[in-house]
Amino acid sequence: MTQTDKHADIDSHTGMHTTGHEWDGIKELNTPLPRWWVNILYATIVWAFFYCIAYPAIPLIQSFTPGVLGWSSRQGVNDDLAKLRERRAPIVAALSKASLQEIEQNPQLRTFAIAQGKAAFGDNCAPCHGAGGGGSKGYPNLNDDDWLWGGSLDQIAATINHGARSDDDQTHAGMMPAFGRDGMLKPKEISDVADYVRSLSGLTQPAGVDLKAGAKIFADNCASCHGEKGQGNLELGAPNLTDAIWLYGSDKDVIVDGLKNGRGGVMPAWAGRLDATTIKALTVYVHTLGGGR
Protein backbone atom coordinates (compact mmCIF):
# COMPACT_ATOMS: atom_id res chain seq x y z
CA MET A 1 0.00 0.00 0.00
CA THR A 2 1.43 3.41 -0.85
CA GLN A 3 1.25 6.70 1.05
CA THR A 4 -1.13 8.25 -1.47
CA ASP A 5 -3.88 5.71 -1.34
CA LYS A 6 -3.86 5.00 2.41
CA HIS A 7 -6.24 7.84 3.15
CA ALA A 8 -8.58 6.47 0.57
CA ASP A 9 -8.97 3.39 2.75
CA ILE A 10 -12.06 3.97 4.84
CA ASP A 11 -13.13 1.66 7.61
CA SER A 12 -16.62 0.46 6.87
CA HIS A 13 -17.79 0.22 10.53
CA THR A 14 -16.80 3.74 11.74
CA GLY A 15 -16.49 5.60 8.47
CA MET A 16 -12.96 6.75 9.56
CA HIS A 17 -9.72 6.72 7.59
CA THR A 18 -7.21 4.05 8.51
CA THR A 19 -3.45 4.50 8.83
CA GLY A 20 -2.92 1.80 6.26
CA HIS A 21 -1.31 -0.55 8.81
CA GLU A 22 -2.85 -3.98 8.81
CA TRP A 23 -2.15 -7.08 10.88
CA ASP A 24 -4.09 -10.24 10.19
CA GLY A 25 -7.00 -8.23 8.88
CA ILE A 26 -7.04 -5.81 11.83
CA LYS A 27 -6.59 -2.22 10.69
CA GLU A 28 -5.54 0.88 12.70
CA LEU A 29 -7.92 3.84 12.59
CA ASN A 30 -6.31 7.22 11.85
CA THR A 31 -8.46 9.19 14.30
CA PRO A 32 -7.56 12.92 14.18
CA LEU A 33 -6.77 14.77 17.42
CA PRO A 34 -9.85 16.44 18.92
CA ARG A 35 -10.33 19.89 17.46
CA TRP A 36 -10.49 21.64 20.87
CA TRP A 37 -7.15 20.11 21.83
CA VAL A 38 -5.44 21.25 18.66
CA ASN A 39 -6.92 24.73 19.07
CA ILE A 40 -5.52 25.03 22.60
CA LEU A 41 -2.10 24.10 21.25
CA TYR A 42 -2.29 26.87 18.65
CA ALA A 43 -3.58 29.29 21.25
CA THR A 44 -0.60 28.62 23.57
CA ILE A 45 1.82 29.27 20.69
CA VAL A 46 0.16 32.61 20.01
CA TRP A 47 0.16 33.34 23.79
CA ALA A 48 3.88 32.59 24.01
CA PHE A 49 4.57 35.01 21.18
CA PHE A 50 2.80 37.89 22.90
CA TYR A 51 4.24 36.90 26.29
CA CYS A 52 7.75 37.29 24.87
CA ILE A 53 6.87 40.82 23.82
CA ALA A 54 5.16 41.76 27.09
CA TYR A 55 7.59 40.24 29.63
CA PRO A 56 11.38 39.88 29.96
CA ALA A 57 12.28 37.09 27.58
CA ILE A 58 14.83 37.15 24.77
CA PRO A 59 18.53 37.14 25.74
CA LEU A 60 20.68 39.64 23.86
CA ILE A 61 24.37 40.59 24.13
CA GLN A 62 24.39 42.76 27.28
CA SER A 63 21.04 42.00 28.81
CA PHE A 64 17.65 40.63 27.82
CA THR A 65 14.58 42.25 26.29
CA PRO A 66 12.78 43.90 29.22
CA GLY A 67 9.29 43.46 27.78
CA VAL A 68 6.86 46.28 27.05
CA LEU A 69 5.08 45.96 30.42
CA GLY A 70 8.33 46.68 32.26
CA TRP A 71 7.64 43.99 34.88
CA SER A 72 10.50 42.63 37.01
CA SER A 73 10.42 40.03 39.75
CA ARG A 74 12.55 42.20 42.05
CA GLN A 75 10.40 45.27 41.51
CA GLY A 76 7.45 42.95 42.09
CA VAL A 77 8.56 41.93 45.57
CA ASN A 78 9.48 45.51 46.41
CA ASP A 79 5.97 46.60 45.42
CA ASP A 80 4.41 43.79 47.47
CA LEU A 81 6.40 44.78 50.53
CA ALA A 82 5.65 48.45 50.00
CA LYS A 83 1.93 47.63 49.95
CA LEU A 84 2.32 45.60 53.12
CA ARG A 85 4.18 48.43 54.83
CA GLU A 86 1.49 50.86 53.75
CA ARG A 87 -1.21 48.69 55.26
CA ARG A 88 0.67 48.37 58.52
CA ALA A 89 1.84 51.97 58.46
CA PRO A 90 -0.67 53.58 60.86
CA ILE A 91 -0.21 51.03 63.63
CA VAL A 92 3.55 50.70 63.08
CA ALA A 93 3.91 54.48 63.22
CA ALA A 94 1.94 54.54 66.45
CA LEU A 95 4.08 51.73 67.80
CA SER A 96 7.37 53.36 66.90
CA LYS A 97 6.28 56.68 68.41
CA ALA A 98 4.96 55.28 71.67
CA SER A 99 7.29 54.38 74.50
CA LEU A 100 7.27 50.85 75.84
CA GLN A 101 5.24 52.01 78.84
CA GLU A 102 2.66 53.73 76.62
CA ILE A 103 2.28 50.60 74.51
CA GLU A 104 1.73 48.61 77.68
CA GLN A 105 -1.14 50.91 78.66
CA ASN A 106 -2.86 51.18 75.27
CA PRO A 107 -4.91 48.00 74.71
CA GLN A 108 -4.97 48.31 70.92
CA LEU A 109 -1.22 48.88 70.60
CA ARG A 110 -0.52 46.17 73.13
CA THR A 111 -2.59 43.60 71.23
CA PHE A 112 -0.81 44.46 68.00
CA ALA A 113 2.62 44.42 69.62
CA ILE A 114 1.96 41.02 71.17
CA ALA A 115 0.79 39.59 67.84
CA GLN A 116 3.80 40.95 65.97
CA GLY A 117 6.15 40.05 68.78
CA LYS A 118 4.88 36.49 68.87
CA ALA A 119 5.50 36.06 65.13
CA ALA A 120 9.00 37.50 65.41
CA PHE A 121 9.68 35.35 68.48
CA GLY A 122 8.76 32.16 66.62
CA ASP A 123 11.30 32.80 63.90
CA ASN A 124 14.12 34.47 65.78
CA CYS A 125 14.01 33.49 69.46
CA ALA A 126 12.27 30.11 69.65
CA PRO A 127 15.28 28.09 68.42
CA CYS A 128 17.04 28.84 71.73
CA HIS A 129 14.34 29.93 74.17
CA GLY A 130 11.76 27.35 73.03
CA ALA A 131 8.50 27.87 71.12
CA GLY A 132 6.69 29.09 74.25
CA GLY A 133 9.72 30.73 75.83
CA GLY A 134 10.30 27.73 78.08
CA GLY A 135 14.03 27.70 77.46
CA SER A 136 16.32 24.71 77.88
CA LYS A 137 19.64 23.93 79.48
CA GLY A 138 21.82 27.00 79.04
CA TYR A 139 19.00 29.05 77.49
CA PRO A 140 16.96 31.00 80.04
CA ASN A 141 13.31 30.22 80.61
CA LEU A 142 11.37 33.42 79.88
CA ASN A 143 8.16 32.30 81.59
CA ASP A 144 9.43 32.40 85.15
CA ASP A 145 10.12 35.45 87.33
CA ASP A 146 13.85 34.88 87.33
CA TRP A 147 15.67 37.33 85.03
CA LEU A 148 19.44 37.31 84.58
CA TRP A 149 19.57 40.86 83.19
CA GLY A 150 16.28 42.16 84.54
CA GLY A 151 12.65 41.66 83.57
CA SER A 152 11.38 45.23 83.25
CA LEU A 153 10.37 46.47 79.80
CA ASP A 154 13.50 48.60 79.44
CA GLN A 155 15.81 45.86 80.68
CA ILE A 156 14.31 43.33 78.28
CA ALA A 157 14.64 45.83 75.41
CA ALA A 158 18.32 46.38 76.27
CA THR A 159 18.99 42.64 76.29
CA ILE A 160 17.25 42.08 72.93
CA ASN A 161 18.96 45.07 71.31
CA HIS A 162 22.49 44.39 72.46
CA GLY A 163 22.52 40.72 73.38
CA ALA A 164 24.63 39.05 76.01
CA ARG A 165 28.38 38.64 75.44
CA SER A 166 27.76 39.39 71.76
CA ASP A 167 29.95 41.50 69.47
CA ASP A 168 27.77 44.56 70.13
CA ASP A 169 29.49 47.51 71.88
CA GLN A 170 26.82 47.82 74.56
CA THR A 171 26.28 44.13 75.12
CA HIS A 172 25.85 42.64 78.59
CA ALA A 173 29.36 41.51 79.34
CA GLY A 174 29.62 39.86 82.75
CA MET A 175 30.61 36.23 82.78
CA MET A 176 31.40 33.43 85.21
CA PRO A 177 35.19 32.93 85.42
CA ALA A 178 36.78 29.51 85.07
CA PHE A 179 37.87 29.14 88.68
CA GLY A 180 39.24 25.63 88.19
CA ARG A 181 40.83 25.89 84.75
CA ASP A 182 42.52 29.18 85.52
CA GLY A 183 43.84 27.91 88.85
CA MET A 184 41.93 30.25 91.16
CA LEU A 185 40.43 27.44 93.24
CA LYS A 186 41.64 23.94 93.99
CA PRO A 187 39.41 20.92 93.26
CA LYS A 188 38.66 20.47 96.99
CA GLU A 189 37.66 24.11 97.33
CA ILE A 190 35.42 23.85 94.28
CA SER A 191 33.70 20.82 95.74
CA ASP A 192 33.15 22.62 99.06
CA VAL A 193 31.76 25.79 97.52
CA ALA A 194 29.51 23.74 95.22
CA ASP A 195 28.00 22.09 98.32
CA TYR A 196 27.51 25.50 99.90
CA VAL A 197 25.84 26.89 96.74
CA ARG A 198 23.45 23.96 96.71
CA SER A 199 22.56 24.64 100.32
CA LEU A 200 21.54 28.24 99.45
CA SER A 201 18.37 27.08 97.74
CA GLY A 202 17.76 24.39 100.36
CA LEU A 203 18.74 21.35 98.32
CA THR A 204 19.28 18.25 100.43
CA GLN A 205 22.92 17.46 101.08
CA PRO A 206 24.66 14.16 101.69
CA ALA A 207 25.80 13.64 105.30
CA GLY A 208 29.12 15.05 106.45
CA VAL A 209 29.26 18.07 104.15
CA ASP A 210 31.37 20.92 105.48
CA LEU A 211 29.29 24.03 104.70
CA LYS A 212 31.51 26.34 106.77
CA ALA A 213 34.50 25.90 104.48
CA GLY A 214 32.27 26.46 101.47
CA ALA A 215 30.76 29.60 102.97
CA LYS A 216 34.23 31.11 103.45
CA ILE A 217 35.26 30.36 99.85
CA PHE A 218 31.95 31.78 98.65
CA ALA A 219 32.44 35.02 100.56
CA ASP A 220 35.96 35.42 99.17
CA ASN A 221 35.34 34.50 95.54
CA CYS A 222 31.67 34.47 94.61
CA ALA A 223 29.95 37.12 96.71
CA SER A 224 31.38 40.00 94.69
CA CYS A 225 29.11 39.07 91.79
CA HIS A 226 26.44 36.78 93.21
CA GLY A 227 25.97 38.89 96.35
CA GLU A 228 26.74 38.04 99.98
CA LYS A 229 23.65 35.92 100.31
CA GLY A 230 23.82 34.61 96.74
CA GLN A 231 20.88 36.75 95.71
CA GLY A 232 22.48 37.57 92.35
CA ASN A 233 23.18 40.84 90.54
CA LEU A 234 21.30 42.02 87.48
CA GLU A 235 24.07 44.44 86.50
CA LEU A 236 26.48 41.58 85.98
CA GLY A 237 23.97 38.95 84.94
CA ALA A 238 25.00 36.94 87.98
CA PRO A 239 22.16 34.52 88.64
CA ASN A 240 20.28 34.42 91.92
CA LEU A 241 21.51 31.24 93.62
CA THR A 242 18.87 31.16 96.33
CA ASP A 243 15.86 30.40 94.14
CA ALA A 244 15.27 26.93 92.81
CA ILE A 245 15.78 28.00 89.19
CA TRP A 246 18.92 26.64 87.56
CA LEU A 247 20.09 27.58 84.10
CA TYR A 248 22.42 24.61 83.69
CA GLY A 249 21.10 22.25 86.37
CA SER A 250 21.32 21.79 90.12
CA ASP A 251 23.35 18.56 90.23
CA LYS A 252 26.65 18.93 92.01
CA ASP A 253 28.52 17.74 88.90
CA VAL A 254 26.97 20.52 86.84
CA ILE A 255 27.83 23.19 89.40
CA VAL A 256 31.38 21.86 89.72
CA ASP A 257 31.71 21.96 85.93
CA GLY A 258 30.56 25.60 85.91
CA LEU A 259 33.07 26.49 88.63
CA LYS A 260 35.85 24.69 86.82
CA ASN A 261 35.32 25.92 83.26
CA GLY A 262 33.23 29.04 83.73
CA ARG A 263 29.97 29.94 82.05
CA GLY A 264 29.11 32.56 79.50
CA GLY A 265 26.14 31.81 77.28
CA VAL A 266 25.92 34.07 74.24
CA MET A 267 22.81 35.87 73.07
CA PRO A 268 23.21 37.66 69.71
CA ALA A 269 22.47 41.38 69.44
CA TRP A 270 19.33 41.91 67.40
CA ALA A 271 19.54 45.67 66.93
CA GLY A 272 20.96 45.53 63.41
CA ARG A 273 19.04 42.48 62.34
CA LEU A 274 15.49 43.39 63.35
CA ASP A 275 14.03 46.86 62.98
CA ALA A 276 13.30 48.99 66.04
CA THR A 277 9.53 48.47 65.90
CA THR A 278 9.87 44.69 65.78
CA ILE A 279 12.20 44.80 68.79
CA LYS A 280 9.63 46.91 70.65
CA ALA A 281 6.92 44.39 69.81
CA LEU A 282 9.20 41.54 70.92
CA THR A 283 9.91 43.33 74.18
CA VAL A 284 6.22 43.71 74.96
CA TYR A 285 5.59 40.07 74.02
CA VAL A 286 8.47 38.72 76.12
CA HIS A 287 7.33 40.92 78.99
CA THR A 288 3.91 39.23 78.90
CA LEU A 289 5.59 35.82 79.29
CA GLY A 290 7.18 36.36 82.64
CA GLY A 291 8.16 39.98 82.89
CA GLY A 292 8.01 42.06 86.01
CA ARG A 293 10.10 41.84 89.12
Binding site: G138, Y139, G265
Partner: peptide, 8 residues
Protein backbone atom coordinates in the same frame (compact mmCIF):
# COMPACT_ATOMS: atom_id res chain seq x y z
CA UNK B 1 24.85 33.49 59.71
CA UNK B 2 25.12 35.37 63.04
CA UNK B 3 21.50 34.55 63.83
CA UNK B 4 22.28 32.06 66.62
CA UNK B 5 25.24 31.63 68.94
CA UNK B 6 28.08 29.19 68.27
CA UNK B 7 27.08 27.29 71.40
CA UNK B 8 23.56 26.91 70.02
Amino acid sequence: GAKYSDEW
